[in-house]
């Protein structure tokens, strides 16, 4: 659906490229994630894909046609949520939504969307009086009100409580189940792990690795067994590879001779893999 080839970008006043030749494609009906630390170029890439930033190098096509050939009706097809929720603060939630709704040919069922994110009761409140989480939820409604074919979401769960983050993730999954395609950026591992069909690791404007979360775990993850046992008056922790564990003499010996405190198998998280592959931590400040 979207095909990006050797994309490079430098901000007009920037000293060097912040996107350094990335290539990827997003298939129809797929949730494609961009995972990377702050400043990696996630938002910049999204802004290029949605035709807000021009003057990039490389080629980008949508439905087989170069995106520069599309006019403003491109936006009938897509829904966008930005990093920051954006609305007219001195208008009510519903006035905001009604205004934007009229600009599109295709209209979604607003009542249903508003109820889904739990804002229907507050629809006549000024957006300026909304809490941060409410604004983010309204932003999601705004992004979906034209029944888009494709959604672009820049850190959509950032600032949402776990409950609402879960509702949002369900909405995204349902959107895909109905045939929608999603581009999502995040530096929150669990979002990507739970949602994405494929993920690209992005660091300093370069894609370091790209695959499904499952394949990445198979490729980089190690499956292991961790055993904690009592040794004199302290606890010893040892790790064994899961493969062939039944024949591992040392492991079996410990099981038989020691007092076992805990025993659990573990698989490497996507976060561990990210650090292992890129050598960079996802969150530097939090």
């Amino acid at each position: 659906m979207f095909k990006v080839e050797d994309l490079k970008y430098r901000y007009p006043k920037g000293e060097h490229d912040v996107i350094n030749g990335i290539s990827f494609d997003i298939s129809e009906g797929e949730i494609f994630g961009f995972l990377g630390p702050s400043g990696a170029g996630k938002s910049t890439t999204q802004k290029i894909l949605i035709k807000i930033l021009g003057d990039y190098r490389g080629t980008i096509s949508y439905s087989g046609k170069d995106i520069t050939e599309f006019k403003d009706d491109f936006y009938e097809d897509i829904g966008v949520s930005f990093e920051m929720p954006i609305h007219f603060s001195k208008m009510t939630a519903m006035e905001n939504i009604d205004f934007f709704l009229k600009l599109y040919k295709n209209n979604a069922d607003v009542e249903e969307l508003m109820k889904r994110v739990g804002l229907w009761e507050d629809r006549d409140m000024m957006v300026g009086e909304f809490s941060k989480g409410m604004k983010i939820r309204l932003n999601i409604v705004r992004a979906m009100l034209n029944n888009p074919k494709m959604l672009f979401m820049d850190e959509p769960t950032n600032g949402l409580d776990p409950m609402n983050a879960m509702i949002l993730k369900d909405m995204i999954r349902e959107f895909r189940a109905d045939g929608g395609t999603v581009f999502i950026t995040s530096h929150i591992m669990s979002d990507i792990d739970q949602l994405c069909d494929r993920v690209a690791f992005i660091v300093e404007g370069k894609i370091i690795e790209m695959d499904s979360p499952r394949n990445l775990k198979i490729k980089y993850g190690k499956r292991s067994m961790t055993l904690e046992y009592k040794e004199n008056d302290h606890t010893e922790i040892v790790e064994f590879p899961l493969d062939g564990i039944g024949k591992n003499k040392e492991f079996l010996n410990l099981l038989q001779t020691k007092e076992v405190e805990t025993l659990h198998s573990g698989e490497t998280t996507l976060e561990d893999i990210f650090i292992q592959v890129t050598g960079v931590k996802l969150k530097n400040e939090e």
């Binding site: 949605i50 807000i52 006019k71 403003d72 009706d73 491109f74 936006y75 009938e76 897509i78 966008v80 930005f82 920051m84 954006i86 609305h87 007219f88 603060s89 934007f100 600009l103 599109y104 040919k105 705004r142």
Partner: peptide, 14 residues
């Protein structure tokens, strides 16, 4: 001050 133009940019409005 409300950055609302960026939202307008992603609607079909010219």
């Amino acid at each position: 001050s409300e950055s609302t133009i960026s939202t307008m940019l992603v609607t079909p409005t010219t």
